[in-house]
Nucleic acid binder design. Sequence first.
DNA 1: CCCTGATTCGC
DNA 2: GCGAATCAGG
Length: 213
Amino acid sequence: MSWTDERVETLKRMWAEGASASQIAKELGQVTRNAVIGKVHRLGLSNRAVPGSRAEDGLPEIVEEEVPVQPIPAAPARAPVAAAPVEDDEPEEMPAEVEVEEPEPEEAEEQEEASAPVPFRRQIIPAGQPLPPQPSANEISPEAQAAALAVEKTSKRLTLMELTEKTCKWPVGDPATPNFWFCGMPVQQGKPYCEAHVGVAFQPMSARRDRRR
DNA sequence: CCCTGATTCGC
DNA sequence: GCGAATCAGG
């Protein structure tokens, strides 16, 4: 396939609209993003306006060292979130292994047949031990918290077994409770969490320090 | 890991 | 001119 006037026109138009080279390539078909990029350069229409939206990341970006915050949302105890076949791992997410204390093996089976589908199987004693340092309640920026909360209201609510490399592994709720689940939204590239939860998991050091009591 | 654009260089 | 391979950055 060659660069017909029409194809070039499409290329120019899409490029001007901010489409990425791969998007354009997909649209045109029969060419790779490399071909598109190459053509873009030969046409001399390289630098263009910002691709994405307009109100997106127009902020100054106050980026600082990122510091992992205890991956504990509102849950009192941490669930062993195992990232598939364990391997390398640099001190980035700090697994912080913490056994979730089993309240007590069940003994008297409650027969709540025609009751609610997912009832409260008896008040469960939330871990009879000092819980790990409660999260970063006041260390998390209000914005990040709000974002996470919003996501949690619409997230996929996956079980441990349903997690994959592409699902957010942020735990929500009390692991010792029936309504405990994992966010499950699409992860942010390279991270174990979705955008919203990455927002609470990784806080700029200074901001975190300032907020802390 | 997944994506982006930029560059190089044999064809 | 073309575009795969590679590089550099997010």
